[in-house]
């Protein structure tokens, strides 16, 4: 039984402040496991975790798989190219089939928003949204919060600037409400063509002037820009994007000394971040990756492996 307020994690809004604190504190103690030679806990022994990744993903899928294995769960990976969806099976039928096979946690990555919700309607398992279309990616937000909290010792009062394609970013879709919930301040920086219609609803203010914002930030959070060339692209060129919104040596100098740089990956080296901005000690993107395993372990542990006495309370 879950010790969290919701059986599933589809949106960051499914979690309370207390839930998030609980997950981050649990992750903090689990970080120690990840330093050991034998990185294994028996918590999810006998449980089955399905990674249903119907859209390409290396980082998130691997992170979930490692997290589940370190908790001794049996893990199954299903990817877009190996699943029956390529044979025309609907998500409803895939979910019902997985349910019949029997699994305890299902993690889904899908190119369409709301896919994780569809799973909850067709499976008994706890469902974790591993990224649905341009909607949300709540575990990314949790690992980002964890990274910030480990570094600063707090979340309340931090000023986070998120730069890049906000409109199509499920990372921002979860991180912005999460920051608001935890008492941090957010500013988004992007050309208007890469902003959602009502960014105010996500709890962020908008700036088009990165240089003016940089000195005020505790966290500079950079997003990837879609490289794909397309008719009616929202940008004239990547060159111009980098000029206006990319961070290199000059803009690094504008950051306050205590500020950190984060990025959910994968990075387009030389576009949003130069090699210098990737090499600096301020850049915590690899800490984020490590945090991802601990946070996902904590989440799964609290979802299905939590202490029984807590569940009864």
């Amino acid at each position: 039984m879950s010790t969290l307020s919701s059986q599933h994690l589809l949106e960051i809004e499914d979690l309370s402040v207390e839930n998030i604190d609980h997950i981050l504190s649990t992750a903090h103690s689990l970080m120690e496991i990840n330093m050991r030679t034998i990185k294994k806990l028996p918590t999810l022994r006998g449980r089955t975790v399905v990674n249903l990744f119907l859209e390409p993903s290396t980082r998130t899928r691997t992170s979930f798989e490692i997290a589940a294995k370190r908790l001794s769960a049996d893990t199954i990976n299903i990817s877009g190219s190996t699943s029956a969806t390529v044979k025309g099976e609907s998500l409803v039928d895939t979910a019902q089939t997985l349910d019949a096979l029997g699994c305890d946690i299902a993690i889904i990555r899908h190119r369409f928003a709301g896919a994780a919700h569809t799973l909850t309607q067709n499976m008994r398992a706890s469902v974790i949204n591993g990224g649905d279309g341009c909607h949300q990616h709540p575990t990314q937000a949790l690992l980002d919060l964890f990274t910030m909290r480990e570094h600063f010792g707090r979340l309340k009062g931090l000023h986070v600037g998120i730069v890049g394609d906000i409109a199509h970013s499920r990372v921002a879709g979860s991180l912005l409400p999460a920051l608001r919930l935890m008492g941090a301040t957010s500013t988004v920086v992007a050309p208007p063509t890469l902003l959602p219609a009502r960014v105010d609803l996500l709890g962020a203010t908008v700036s088009y002037d990165l240089d003016a914002l940089l000195p005020k930030l505790d966290v500079l959070y950079m997003l990837r820009i879609q490289q794909e060339r397309q008719a009616r692209a929202p940008l004239p060129s990547l060159r111009e994007y980098t000029m206006l919104f990319g961070v290199g040596r000059r803009r690094l100098g504008l950051l306050s000394p205590h500020a950190i740089i984060m990025h959910p990956g994968p990075v387009n080296r030389g576009v949003e971040l130069s090699s210098a901005a990737l090499a600096t000690a301020k850049n915590l993107r690899l800490d984020q990756v490590s945090a991802g395993v601990a946070v996902r372990m904590a989440l799964m542990y609290l979802m299905v492996g939590g202490e029984k006495k807590n569940a009864a309370a």
């Binding site: 279309g133 879709g173 009502r198 996500l202």
Partner: peptide, 15 residues
């Protein structure tokens, strides 16, 4: 509709 719902649900807006 492009507005509240497109932002909240991460869906493409129909302005």
């Amino acid at each position: 509709h492009e507005g509240i719902v497109s932002t909240r649900l991460g869906l493409a807006g129909w302005p």
